[in-house]
Design a protein around this nucleic acid. Sequence first.
DNA 1: AAAATGGCCAACCGCTGTTAG
DNA 2: GCTAACAGCGGTTGGCCATTT
Length: 315
Amino acid sequence: MGRPPCCDKVGVKKGPWTPEEDLMLVSYIQEHGPGNWRAVPTNTGLMRCSKSCRLRWTNYLRPGIKRGNFTDQEEKLIVHLQALLGNRWAAIASYLPERTDNDIKNYWNTHLKKKLKKIQAAGGGEDGGGSVKAASAPKGQWERRLQTDIHTARQALRDALSLDASPSPSPAKPTAAAATATPAGSASAAYASSADNIARLLQGWMRPGSGGGGGGGAKGPEASGSTSTTTNQQPQCSGEGAASASASQSGGAGGNAAAAKTPEGSTETSKMAGGGGNAPAFSMLESWLLDDGGMGHGEVGLMDVVPLGDPSEFF
DNA sequence: AAAATGGCCAACCGCTGTTAG
DNA sequence: GCTAACAGCGGTTGGCCATTT
């Protein structure tokens, strides 16, 4: 009963996307909206796997994506959420609507993991404990607790986000982000990272009031994850963007992944254990987060409501 | 100035959950 | 209720670029 591949491997193009391909994909989605990825390669003539098309859209072409350096705020948010949710990048990404799960995952693996390790080492390594201990809790308990955590975290994050909303991280570096994200190297690589190019491609995309991306507008779950940024892309996705932006602040975006996704049994617990394994002891984290001087407002609340140390405290 | 090394990021692969027939 | 197909997620890899030797 082996599952067949998502597409014919023969004749499927791999590797970096070209501007032409992007254009084809964008104009198709413009017409039909995101979703039904299976049909995309055949209808567009793209020699790409459906998964590849979806990935390209969700990670690069989708409106409202912020690229480039992560702000301090975002960084801390990710640390919180990783400790809370484990390596569930999609769920974490739902709290940072401008970032893709892939981006967050990469950032975690390349920056944050090291950073935390360093902090942990500096602090004397009382580790092992905290969150791992939590993972040893019975599964059902974990599931309930996870939901509680997500709920409270969402609440706290909403506060944090709404507090930060005015000077939101976005304006901090859209241009710098684009600049840094644009390697001077190969044309395709440069293209792939160029927010400007993507923005150009997307001009005219999402006509206001068009039901977002045409007929299929409402259908794409990804679309709900997208949001407006403060970049020049904003006007292009005003309708949907506004909605999802507010959704993200009201916890709606969280709902689409973090909350909607119920904890998955043993996998879940093991994943959480894994997350705990990655996460340093919480006292260390706390000190970092506090010492860093960034713990301005809402995130303190998060830390307060989400001490992973002893799950039993929650019940 | 050239070579070696490390880091970063885009994309792919395989697995899982969900849904339709 | 079962099977097959689709969609999504997380882990991993490969290539490019920057930095160091």
